[in-house]
Simulated scan of single mutants.
Amino acid sequence: MSAELEGKATIVTGGASGIGRGIVERFVAEGAHVVIADVQTELGEALAADLGDAAIFQRTDVADQDDVARVVARAVDEFGGLDVMVNNAGRSSPLKKGLFDEDFAEFDSVMRVNLLGVMAGTRDAGRYMADHGGGAIVNMASIGGILAGGGVASYRASKAAIIQFSKSAAIELAHYDIRVNCIAPGNIPTPILRSAATDEDRERLEKFEARIRQQMRDDRPLKREGAASDVAEAVLYFATDRSRYVTGTVLPVDGGTVAGKVMVRKPNRDGSGAR
Rank of each mutant, 00 (worst) to 15 (best):
P267R: 14
V246G: 00
G81Y: 09
Y237K: 10
E4P: 01
D219V: 13
E30H: 13
Q58R: 12
G14P: 06
A170Y: 02
E78N: 01
R217K: 10
Q164T: 15
A148C: 04
T13C: 05
E25P: 12
G90F: 05
K8V: 06
T60I: 08
I56W: 09
D103F: 05
R123G: 06
I163W: 01
T190S: 08
E30N: 13
N114I: 03
I36T: 03
S109Q: 15
E6C: 09
A16R: 02
S166W: 00
G133I: 05
A55G: 10
E233A: 09
S142F: 04
A210L: 11
E30S: 12
L205T: 11
A63E: 10
F57W: 14
R59Y: 10
S243V: 11
T257L: 02
G22P: 01
D219W: 14
G15R: 06
L115Q: 11
H175K: 08
K96G: 15
A63L: 10
R213V: 06
S168K: 02
G20T: 06
Y245R: 12
G271H: 02
D53E: 15
S93V: 01
G135E: 13
P267T: 11
V39D: 07
A232M: 04
A32W: 10
Y176F: 08
D83H: 13
M263E: 11
V86M: 11
A196F: 02
L5F: 07
R59M: 12
G256N: 00
V253S: 08
A274Y: 12
D131A: 07
K97F: 15
G126N: 01
A55M: 06
G226T: 07
A69N: 11
M129V: 02
A120C: 04
D218G: 13
A239W: 06
E106P: 00
T122S: 05
Y128R: 02
R127G: 04
A259Y: 06
G126Q: 01
V110K: 00
G31V: 09
A197R: 00
M119P: 00
G256F: 07
E42D: 14
A228H: 01
A210K: 15
R220W: 09
G20H: 02
G81R: 07
L147Y: 01
V152E: 01
G126A: 02
R202L: 15
V84L: 14
D67Y: 07
V246I: 08
S168V: 05
Q65G: 15
Y176D: 11
Q215E: 08
D199P: 06
V152C: 00
A32R: 05
R242W: 01
I11M: 11
A46Q: 10
G133P: 14
E209M: 04
G31D: 13
G149E: 10
N139G: 07
L236H: 09
A37S: 08
A69H: 09
F208Q: 09
G18C: 07
R194M: 07
A259R: 03
K97M: 13
A63K: 08
L95D: 13
K97E: 15
K261L: 14
L205E: 12
D101Y: 15
L99S: 11
Q58Y: 14
V72F: 14
F79D: 13
L5C: 02
A161D: 06
M85A: 06
A125Q: 03
L95C: 11
A170S: 13
R217T: 08
G151E: 05
R269K: 00
